[in-house]
């Protein structure tokens, strides 16, 4: 549990934690606003985004990919909103039309373009490559203080850490308007708050989290982390602040347990190969949610129904 852990497990686990927390934070508000599935939609359109970026630049470098994914997320959000308003279609169906269409377009483009010699495929976008984000230069905990070894950290780690810090800072700064407009939009508007801008900003933050995370950890973790930790947290408490706190705890727990179970679980069971860490992180978050559904202190709908 020394050098080998630092070399092969520390960085993937940290990246997993950052990615999970970055998605769980906006997920709290998305769930309360009945927009939980926007994360699902965004994750699906990442694929067409990176394919288009590849077709334009001809490389699979990181930054063009991220820009393509972000652009696609933006296009998707705008299209969903346009279809919802112009066609007077309920949000779920509008989302379903747009993200599946864009995904189909992405798959078609991928088939049509010659990507045989580059590592660009649907599975990669879905599952990421968490297991490969290892820190070969490290030879123990002491490497954390060694500037040469530190300079060989996988670049995904600082990138994901910065993205997570920015999202956390934004959540903190805009806490009051987010809470106010999520709870009572009419009142927020009457106060003069730019409700539509807040709503767009939230979706943009979610998209940024999804885009920053997909490259490292894949879309599965992204979708699961948008929903499962915040949903489980909602069942633990009736205070928004505490809910966000719980969701961060659950996201972190899912990332750590998921990675360890994926890497070492099969060995404990006598198998020789590890299994997908991304899938396992999602599965662990599901187990946490199931436990919260069964035992969470605030799991029941209580009180008097509104209205009448």
């Amino acid at each position: 549990m020394g050098a080998e852990f630092v070399q092969f497990s520390l960085t993937p686990i940290l990246i997993g934690i950052f990615a999970s927390v970055a998605c769980a934070l906006p997920g709290n508000f998305l769930i309360l606003r009945r927009q939980a599935l926007i994360g699902d939609a965004i994750s699906h359109v990442v694929l067409p985004g990176i394919v288009v970026a590849f077709l334009i630049t001809g490389t699979v470098a990181t930054w063009p990919m991220l820009a393509g994914a972000a652009g696609a997320a933006l296009v998707a959000v705008v299209l969903i909103e346009a279809v919802r308003r112009l066609g007077k279609i309920e949000p779920g169906a509008a989302m379903g039309v747009i993200f599946t269409s864009l995904f189909a377009g992405g798959v078609l483009l991928l088939e049509q373009s010659d990507t045989s010699n580059v590592h660009l495929d649907v599975e990669h976008a879905l599952m990421g490559n968490l297991e490969q984000l290892i820190w070969l230069r490290a030879d123990g905990w002491a490497s954390l203080l060694d500037p040469i070894a530190l300079s060989h950290l996988p670049p995904e780690l600082p990138r994901m850490a910065i993205a997570t810090l920015i999202i956390a800072a934004l959540t903190w700064v805009f806490w009051r308007p987010l809470k106010l407009s999520s709870f009572d939009e009419g009142f927020a508007r009457a106060l003069g708050l730019p409700v539509n801008l807040i709503s767009l900003g939230l979706v943009a933050a979610a998209a940024a989290a999804a885009v920053a995370a997909f490259d490292a950890v894949g879309s599965i973790i992204v979708i699961a982390m948008f929903i499962c930790p915040p949903a489980a947290a909602r069942l633990m408490t009736n205070r928004l602040g505490a809910q966000v706190g719980w969701s961060v705890v659950f996201a972190t727990l899912s990332a750590i347990l998921g990675y360890i179970l994926a890497g070492y679980g099969p060995l404990w069971l006598g198998a020789s190969n590890s299994v997908s860490a991304a899938g396992m992180v999602a599965a662990v978050s599901g187990v946490i949610l199931a436990l919260a559904c069964l035992f969470g202190p605030a799991r029941h709908r209580v009180g008097v129904a509104a209205g009448g």
Binding site: L32, P177, F183, D184, G186, F187, A190, R239, Q243
Partner: peptide
């Protein structure tokens, strides 16, 4: 402005005092 009671989600995770504090947003801002 006091909206209709049915216009919000009363399942929202917040307390009575919190809701009243929302009325102070004009004073405390961000």
């Amino acid at each position: 402005y006091v909206p209709q009671r049915a216009s919000v989600d009363w399942d929202f995770p917040t307390t009575a005092l919190d809701v009243v504090l929302m009325g102070l947003f004009g004073q405390v801002g961000l």
